[in-house]
């Protein structure tokens, strides 16, 4: 299956970006083959408003079934939830470690945002 992970870089050794909406990159990772599709998120990094909503829409359009990130706010969570994308918050380490944790069932999925909205 395909999952989305927020990343500071473009490969498996990159660190997970704790931010969701304004993460540098979103990596769409195939959990079996570890094949990566890199999404440059620079447009949303500099978004005027609604970066989380926009990034969530992009993740959903790519067909990811789960998202691993550090912090996810209420608007992003609402969007991901509507899209049926499960949200794993508080994920740290590098991308490879995050995928392994996911495959081993060690990522817990939340039913709410884990940070407040901001303006």
């Amino acid at each position: 299956m395909k999952i989305a992970i927020t990343s500071k870089g473009t490969d498996l050794d990159s660190e997970v970006d704790p931010r969701f909406g304004r993460a540098a990159y979103i990596l769409i990772v195939d959990t079996t083959s570890l094949a990566i599709e890199v999404l440059d998120n620079s447009e949303n990094v500099n978004a005027f408003k609604g970066a989380g909503i926009q990034t969530a829409t992009m993740v959903s359009n790519k067909g990811a079934e789960a998202l691993l990130t550090g912090f996810c706010g209420p608007n992003a969570f609402k969007t991901l939830n509507a899209a049926g994308v499960k949200v794993g918050n508080d994920v740290t380490g590098n991308i490879r470690e995050a995928v392994n944790a996911f495959n081993e069932g060690k990522v817990s999925f939340s039913d709410a945002a884990n940070v407040d909205g901001h303006w």
């Binding site: 978004a47 408003k49 609604g50 970066a51 909503i53 829409t57 959903s60 899209a83």
Partner: peptide, 23 residues
């Protein structure tokens, strides 16, 4: 509608339209 909104107050996710009134 989602494309014209500068403030991302509308998101279209497959067959759902989400509005974010506060934005």
């Amino acid at each position: 509608c989602a494309e014209i909104c500068r403030f991302k107050a509308i998101a279209v996710i497959s067959k759902t339209v989400l509005t974010f009134p506060e934005l």
